[in-house]
Design a protein around this nucleic acid. Sequence first.
DNA 1: CTGGATCCTTTTAGATACTG
DNA 2: CAGTATCTAAAAGGATCCAG
Lengths: 117, 117
Amino acid sequence: MTYEEFKEKVGSVILTDEGNCPVTPVVQMLQGKWKLQILYELCIKCPMRFGELKKMLKPITNTALTNALKELEADDLIQRIQYNEMPLRVEYSLTLKGQDLLPVFYSIMQWGIKYIP
Amino acid sequence: MTYEEFKEKVGSVILTDEGNCPVTPVVQMLQGKWKLQILYELCIKCPMRFGELKKMLKPITNTALTNALKELEADDLIQRIQYNEMPLRVEYSLTLKGQDLLPVFYSIMQWGIKYIP
DNA sequence: CTGGATCCTTTTAGATACTG
DNA sequence: CAGTATCTAAAAGGATCCAG
């Protein structure tokens, strides 16, 4: 896509909400130190358990992981399922909405490959 | 792109850096309350002057705008050109690297259109 | 006009200990 | 195992005043 094409599309499609950036709210939703990494892990393996995620995101604390997971669930990007076994088991997985972020991740990744050494 | 396709591509292409999310560093770079909005404004109109940007991002303060612009420039996403006229004029524009974010913005936008009411 | 400098408030993240 | 609760540290953001 060229610069002019973008201007044209954005200008007509969604620049209606008082000139605000249509990208910002989405990125706000993904902000925080851990959310994207969690989503990424769930892209690679899904579902995953709490402890499994914690191990992958190594230096993360319980508090941080819990908070991030809660916010992602509140935004309906991931789903939490609790199995009342002994010991307790909880599994997190991407929702359809969350899976729909894959193309976004991929385009970001393509940019990163080009520009991040 | 499907879930499986993503896994395959990501797994082979870039999952080399110790399992860390390849998307995160890019998003880190775009984090902060104002950076994306600035880039977006520059997508719509480029170049723009300091005061012009300030007007578009209405409640922003000088400090916040200055800081965001500096960081964007440090990441080589925008370019600052100063004209020593009287009164002083400074123009900001997207670099090629910055313009290359357009497809990313567009894919985020598509997602937003689908899921944000 | 385009910021710099300073101070202050708010938000976010980390450490530690504890529970069903 | 999967969290909660509480506290502290750090970072981000805002307000105000000043300068080339």
